[in-house]
């Protein structure tokens, strides 16, 4: 596991994704227009082809100079902490996007900001004030001043 190179993985993802897209393009899109001009399929196909070619080059390059190992990021304590923190923030962001669809924006936004503050280990009182402040200011700016309705539910 330690030897898997990040660039190799990304290269493989590119290769597979482009392959699938190419398959979809070839099965669903027309090859040519009624008058015989190139049809909808030409460009996606060209793009997928070049992506696959470049992905192979990137994979070969990644074998030549294995720079960053995938597991290496968890080596020291500091890195591990920030990695976990990023994951938490992402989860919080996803939670916010879900909540936004069910409860008013002000509440969802406040929860999102408050959880972020918690993830960053801020003090409780400060967290509440800061979350309410940012959410409120943005709400006034967008919803009141610019008349964008922010409630989805």
């Amino acid at each position: 596991m330690k030897k898997v190179n990040g660039n190799t993985v990304i290269g493989l993802i590119f290769l597979i994704a482009a392959g699938i897209t190419m398959y979809i393009a070839n099965t669903t899109l027309k090859a040519s227009a009624p008058a015989g001009d190139p049809g909808s399929r030409l460009f996606p196909n060209l793009a997928c082809g070049s992506i696959m070619l470049l992905a192979v080059i990137i994979i070969i390059q990644s074998f030549k100079n294995p720079a960053k190992a995938f597991a290496g990021i968890l080596a020291d304590e500091d890195r591990r902490q920030s990695c976990i923190r990023t994951l938490f923030i992402l989860a919080d962001l996803a939670l916010f996007l879900v909540l936004w669809n069910f409860i008013p924006f002000l509440a969802a936004g406040f929860i999102f900001m408050f959880l972020q503050c918690m993830i960053f280990r801020e003090k409780l009182v400060f967290s509440i004030l800061y979350s309410a402040g940012v959410t409120g200011v943005l709400y006034v700016m967008f919803a009141v001043f610019l008349k964008v309705r922010l409630n989805i539910y």
Partner: peptide
């Protein structure tokens, strides 16, 4: 960072 994430969503 916190505020920017929020601004981006809105």
């Amino acid at each position: 960072q916190m505020a920017v994430l929020m601004i981006c969503c809105i």
